[in-house]
Nucleic acid binder design. Structure first.
Lengths: 336, 336
DNA sequence: CTTTTTTGCGGAAACGTTTTCGGCTTAAAA
DNA sequence: TTTTAAGCCGAAAACGTTTCCGCAAAAAAG
């Protein structure tokens, strides 16, 4: 089955390539008769336009780049699903890149994307990137960028987030109302925007409820290998916490493990709430109280915003800050 | 910052575009001096080649398509991670498409990929596709295809799977050895290759251990909304099973739910083993005994095979059937 | 000192589209 | 009858590369 191209169709029909091209796109300059002829033959020969030839000429790729830390993670996986659904609806293609939370990788990926491979990028910043020059360069090169979850605050681009501060505040208040006097906040990479605001919410709730918050009430646990021992040490200490609020899903299973090892009863002796999109949350024992982000919706919103920016036809200023509320799902792990 | 292209570099250096092109690729036809000059300027001006121009000319895209049912699923997410790692190592780009287990979507995606957007495709077939013409057409169009997990047996392409039959056999034997006399096999979409062989393994194990296997020992549960009630009915019946072996991760939480609702004690009254890549498996109560597939390795192998096919330089017949063993991880849910 | 080979480079075609420009008919308007 | 307009289409340029072909000068061989 020889590949058929526009010239082939033109030859077959004894008309010019330009006419074929126009006919396929329903140009008003072409007679109905010709359009029908062309389309019929294209259908018959299973003509598929070469995407890159068109991209090159039109300087439009109809593809976006998705740059995220990882995807074996319920949150990112669901965000991605949301993006993908909207992308398919709009006939866009999605290139996906994982930074593995590595700044250098993120830099090289974004640098590569400056060159016209994509029209826009949906980005969630790696946990250890601090400076943002590579992102600036990308935008400078004319690529639209939409942020989600881990955003670059200094940019004027669209940002999709959840109400990190409020969700964290509410989760903390919940712990306090269930009787916690010494909640511990465990988190990661506090220079990120999302975790930063979650911490603020935690701290503010403690203050508002007159808990004498100390420095060691907030624990930044970036290194996987020490999480368990660190947590164990704290839970064995004399002034141990009576509740834990985790800002990230990746820390949500450790307390179970440590409690089991140390014979600490949850929730009686230790109440626990975690940000999480884990499906199994309600099957843990005790079932995990979660702050869950509307990941799928966030993905859809990010994609929708990006396409709106790319297809400038729709007037109206694009929504810059799009905040989706997270919901606190109370289960057994936090109840008195 | 105006975009710089090869012609721009050429003009700047008073040499021809072809020389620049060759210099950038370290052609032996170009003097060391010129090469250095060109590269220095390219570096200075942050030259990035336009990917699609090159693809068009060379008829090589350096991008692959990944077509999978979904990605909010631990198995597929990890496979994808594996693919992505190898892709980045080889400087390939990955377009990802989700079929959402929909045959029509899969058909239209593959049809689109015939047109030269990718060099090859890594595919795991949607659960409800029965005929394979769209895949044949893709291969016919000159696109290399590598299958994993849900494969097309009739194709001579590379296939990456796990030892479905043996793993299922072993898991079933494990249940029997723990005392099960009436194991129930729950599964989905038995026309798929993977589930088909898992069922065979289950059946054979029952036979080998002289259990009088009946038709209702295998239950195909394709519709999410009836899973719970169906399972409940069975577990309430007089000749209820004393063990369950699930062939798919997506069914691995239902038994917990139903047991809780019906007051059935697991594992005392009902033992349970499931195929699963869930991180939380050991945190469920009782901790879930799993057959876990080396998802990340499968992804890496799929990508590696594909790239080997694409870069024909490496001689030697490519490995056609690549079978990765799964491991049975015994936890509490299946112990007597 | 001539002939051949090698080295280093430029011109132009090619990849498959889209789009600009222009031209030719025929019909409508003047 | 002449002018204008409308309708329909073709030739060629353009997008940014790579590569085929050819050619001059220098080096090697004779």
């Amino acid at each position: 089955m020889a590949k058929i191209d526009i010239k082939g169709l033109a030859r077959e029909l004894n008309i010019s390539a330009s006419t074929v091209s126009r006919a396929l796109r329903d140009s008003h300059e072409i007679s109905k008769a010709t359009i029908d002829k062309v389309k019929a033959l294209a259908e018959k020969l299973n003509y598929q336009p070469h995407p890159y030839a068109g991209s090159l000429r039109k300087n439009k790729t109809k593809t976006i780049g998705i740059v995220v830390p990882e995807v074996s993670n319920n949150f990112f996986a669901k965000v991605f699903s949301g993006i993908e659904v909207v992308a398919q609806e709009n006939n866009y293609h999605a290139l996906i890149y994982l930074t593995h939370d590595d700044y250098d990788k993120e830099k090289s990926i974004l640098r590569h994307l400056e060159s016209g491979r994509v029209d826009g990028v949906i980005l969630s910043i790696a946990s250890n990137t601090v400076d943002h020059q590579h992102i600036e360069a990308l935008i400078e090169a004319g690529i639209q960028v939409v942020f989600f979850d881990r955003i670059g605050e200094s940019f004027s681009s669209t940002k999709i987030t959840t109400d990190d501060y409020n969700s964290a505040y509410k989760a903390t208040v919940h712990l306090i109302e269930q009787g916690c006097k010494k909640p511990l906040h465990i988190t990661r990479f506090l220079h990120q925007t999302n975790t930063k605001y979650r911490k603020k919410g935690f701290v503010q709730a403690c203050k508002d409820y007159h808990l004498p918050i100390a420095d060691n009430w907030v624990l930044e646990l970036n290194d996987n290998v020490v999480v368990e021992s660190t947590l164990a040490d704290i839970l064995k200490s004399k002034d141990k916490p009576d509740g834990i609020f985790s800002a990230v899903e990746t820390l949500s299973l450790y307390p179970y493990k440590v409690c089991k090892d140390l014979g600490i009863k949850m929730p009686e002796q230790l109440k626990f709430v975690s940000f999480s999109n884990m499906d199994a949350a309600s099957f843990l024992v005790p079932a995990l109280t979660t702050v869950t982000q509307p990941a799928f919706e966030i993905g859809k919103a990010a994609a929708a915003s990006l396409f709106q920016l790319l297809e400038k036809k729709k007037r109206g200023v694009p929504i810059i800050d799009n905040i989706f509320p997270s919901t606190l799902i109370v289960r057994e792990s936090s109840l008195k």
